[in-house]
């Protein structure tokens, strides 16, 4: 469940971001606390520094120097996490409802098949999830693979993720959604390429699309 024990590129790049920010934040924090301690240990130490030094240096220059590279780095890192929109990427339609997850895929023959509370993907391949909800707001989250995205009734949100290796990854609903919010968990099963088609082939056909489900607007 740990976001730091990563198993996919998206989670990995965010974990790196975290470590970078943690180091930066720790240094800043220690610097400010040291300054504060110094002021009390050696009173009057700043008597010689003009006020503008504190205001311009500490208030403007300091955050500018720290934040500009951070923002650039984060934007660059974030840009690579957005769905590519590449038609070759496999697509899964995800519908959340109180309190279960439904996944609809196309199998090798192009026929829609579905599964509940277990999402099957092919390891090493990106997959695009088109997520919506049939009732209240939920949130799709597999901490070891990628960030979360909300499932909102009337909207379709898109998340792209990839598992580097076959395995079972836990997923949860991260947005509070009522009494059984905690129980709204699912499994993400990443299969080796050679097994994947067989797994999809074994899934039951998808029911006709729910006519009552609200039409989505992206």
């Amino acid at each position: 469940m740990s976001t730091l024990d990563t198993a996919g590129p998206a989670a990995a790049s965010i974990a790196t971001l975290w470590w970078v920010m943690l180091i930066g934040a720790t240094l800043i924090f220690l610097f400010v606390m040291a300054l504060l301690a110094l002021v009390f240990i050696r009173p009057g130490i700043g008597r010689g520094t003009p006020a503008s030094w504190w205001l311009v240096g500490g208030g403007l220059a300091f955050p500018a120097v720290v934040l500009t590279p951070l923002l650039i780095y984060a934007l660059w890192a974030g840009e690579r996490l957005f769905p590519t929109g590449d038609p070759a990427v496999a697509q899964v339609d995800v519908v959340a409802r109180q309190w279960e997850w439904n996944f609809t895929y196309r199998n090798a023959a192009g026929a829609p098949v579905q599964s509940s509370n277990t999402l099957h993907i092919q390891a090493g391949q990106p997959v695009q999830l088109n997520i919506t909800s049939a009732d209240v707001i939920h949130s799709f989250w597999v901490p070891r693979l990628a960030g979360k995205i909300d499932a909102i009734p009337g909207h379709v949100t898109v998340l792209q993720l990839k598992a580097d290796a076959p395995g079972l990854y836990r997923g949860i609903c991260a947005e509070f959604c009522g009494t059984a919010h905690l129980e709204m968990q699912f499994a993400l099963q990443a299969h080796a390429a050679e097994d994947f088609n067989a797994v999809l082939g074994g899934l039951p056909p998808a029911a006709a699309p729910d006519v009552n489900a609200p039409r989505g607007r992206p």
């Binding site: 520094t49 006020a51 030094w53």
Partner: peptide, 9 residues
């Protein structure tokens, strides 16, 4: 930093 500066000076 205005606060810290006030303390420092």
């Amino acid at each position: 930093f205005a606060w810290i500066g006030t303390l420092a000076t």
